Amino acid sequence: MNQGFLVRIIFLLCCWLGMAIHGVAAVSAATNNINVSDDEKGIKQAIHWYLNGTSYNDQSQINKAFYVNARLYLPGKDDAMREMGALEYAQLFPEDKKGQFNGRLGRLISMDVTGDVATAKAEILLLNPGIRFVDVFLLKKIQGTWQIISKTAIRENAPQHGRKILFVVSNAQHYPGTSVSTGNNFPELAYAYQTFIKAGYAVDFVSQQGGSVPLEMINTSDTVQRQHLYSPDFMWALAHTKHPAEIAAKDYAAINYIGGGSAIIEIADNRAIQAIAMQIYEQQGGVLAAICQGTQGISNLKQSNGTYVMSDKVLTSFPDRYLNQQSPVFKAYPFSLENTIKQRKGKFTSGANGSSHIEVDGRLVTGMNWESSVAVAEAVIRLLDGKK
């Protein structure tokens, strides 16, 4: 992780959650810089022109993305490097097929800006044949416009299905009316993310405001957490979560609500996120999942017939008996996910503290605690694989 990235991701100590989790301090990460800079917008625009142009055979968009004298260094046959100019590259996409989707699925992974120079990475999936590219760009701001001045890529041959999972996280940094810090549960993020990525899924993050989100329960002695904490691409995604207005629900096969103290604040009442979730779950027949306190986030979801999604469903979340009701957190903002489920006429279950426990009821998957993160993700994958 480079120094500039570390400066942007600032970790602040916060309080214990008091939920019988031992030896792991709660840590809040990333200042909440919600406003996207003009430079970031310009870079995203250039990458968008490239991604959209190459997916829909639009040479004009490709040419707008690249500086006219840009050079590209691409994977060739037998590990040879293929070099070409930007105009030659654009001509690989036939003009007579302009506007036709050619099977390339692309998304921005990360970017880093230093003055008028930037780097960016994008993932390109070709579903038939199964190929994954990771494109690395060098960009420069030229006469006020960001353009790609060079591009290279790696190529991997692997089956790709092109399906995406949407993780719901929260920008809330403090419990309402208090100075008590909170955040999104980092183990849940890391373990669930890793499970989906290994299964060939792409993962995007959405929050109520977009931008960076606070983190808690980070344990750097845990290999998976440490790997993701020091992954620039993963942490960039958490520092640049999508605003609900940026989300096209049709692009996602499932939605997964991450827990942590932030999950019980604002998310359940956010109408835009509710609409995204119900389009995925009810209209598209996708999977709805939640981990630990993330279950609170789905508590107000209603089906088109007016009934709560939780109604008559078997669910789990962190049970009341494992809460430390004398903790500063509970005194500041008392809550009971167990009662929430029961009030919505759901059937609450739980397991042993510190052990994985999940419930799968139809296309609804819930996990009791962070230890359930992998099992929740695996259950979602099984449900989606069953729809093939």
Rank of each mutant, 00 (worst) to 15 (best):
M1L: 13
N2R: 06
Q3G: 03
G4N: 13
L13N: 12
C15T: 12
G18F: 10
A20S: 14
A20F: 12
A20T: 12
G23N: 15
V24Q: 10
A25G: 12
A30V: 13
T31S: 04
I34G: 03
I34M: 05
I34W: 06
V36Q: 15
S37K: 04
D38H: 00
E40W: 05
I43A: 01
K44T: 02
A46M: 11
I47T: 00
G53W: 01
S55P: 09
S60W: 01
K64D: 13
L72Q: 10
Y73T: 00
P75I: 02
P75Q: 08
K77F: 09
A80W: 04
M84V: 02
G85E: 14
G85V: 09
A90G: 11
A90V: 09
Q91L: 11
D96E: 15
K97M: 15
K97T: 13
G106S: 07
R107V: 07
V117L: 03
K121A: 03
P129R: 03
P129W: 04
V134S: 01
Q147C: 08
P159H: 09
Q160D: 01
Q160A: 06
K164V: 02
P176E: 11
S179N: 10
S181C: 11
N184W: 07
F186T: 09
L189T: 04
A190T: 07
A199R: 04
V203M: 15
S207V: 08
Q208F: 09
Q209W: 12
Q225K: 06
Q225L: 14
Q227A: 08
P232D: 10
P232V: 06
P232E: 14
D233S: 09
D233A: 09
M235I: 12
A239P: 00
A245F: 04
I247P: 00
A248M: 09
K250L: 06
K250W: 06
D251G: 01
D251P: 02
Y252M: 02
A253R: 02
A254Y: 07
A254W: 07
N256E: 11
I265W: 13
I267K: 00
R271M: 14
A275F: 06
I280R: 01
Y281A: 03
V287K: 00
A290M: 06
C292K: 07
T295P: 03
G297V: 12
G297L: 13
Q303K: 15
D312S: 10
V314Y: 06
F318W: 11
Y322V: 13
S327K: 03
P328Q: 15
Y333F: 15
P334N: 07
E338I: 07
K342C: 11
K342V: 15
Q343S: 08
T349N: 09
T349E: 15
A352Y: 13
G354N: 13
G354M: 08
H357D: 05
V360N: 08
W370R: 05
S373M: 10
V376T: 05
V376I: 08
L384F: 10
